[in-house]
């Protein structure tokens, strides 16, 4: 993959990977709908899997429990709502891989569990691989495979 040109890497990232960031990174001035469908703009294949982007975005929002926010500005949402919008943005067009970077760090324990339920539910429905980074070892039970950062670092040190 590291041999690919910059442009090909961009396309690959757009087509294959949905990203959920620690700070969600929504465009605050855009509407929720625009934020959710933004990845489709750069990924024709994902765009092709979606019939009507607006309908798809609404369906995702309903599934994620935020049915009424489509027309709102992203900056007007609560943290929990923003997080769900970030998930919807990552899920739209069903990319094969979702990378989530500490998506639960901003949530208390109860909300964390509820959010993970939602996330796993969606990932399970679409058969998507979820790669998630977390500081919280309690979440590890829910994943098929767990890599500890310390182990990777040690491996690299042995290599060197």
């Amino acid at each position: 993959m590291s041999d690919l040109s910059g442009g090909r890497r961009d396309t690959l990232r757009a087509e294959q990977i949905g990203m959920i960031f620690q700070q969600f990174n929504l465009l605050p001035f855009g509407s929720v709908l625009d934020n959710i469908v933004l990845p489709l703009r750069f990924a024709p294949e994902r765009r092709g899997r979606v019939g009507d982007p607006k309908v798809e975005a609404r369906a995702l929002c309903e599934a994620l429990g935020i049915p009424d926010v489509l027309e709102m500005k992203a900056s007007a949402l609560s943290v929990g709502q923003q997080q769900r919008v970030a998930v919807a943005r990552a899920m739209i067009g069903r990319p094969p891989i979702i990378i989530a970077d500490e998506p639960t760090s901003a949530l208390d324990e109860t909300s964390q569990a509820a959010f993970l339920d939602l996330l796993f539910d969606q990932v399970g429905q679409h058969g998507t691989a979820l790669v998630m980074v977390s500081h919280d070892p309690r979440l590890s039970d829910r994943f098929d495979r767990v890599l500890r950062m310390e182990d990777i670092v040690q491996l690299e040190r042995q290599d060197a």
Binding site: G6, G7, D10, A14, M19, L26, P39, R41, F42
Partner: peptide, 9 residues
């Protein structure tokens, strides 16, 4: 954000 979404430079 645009780049992360796959926008080309």
């Amino acid at each position: 954000i645009f780049r992360a979404m796959g926008a080309r430079p």
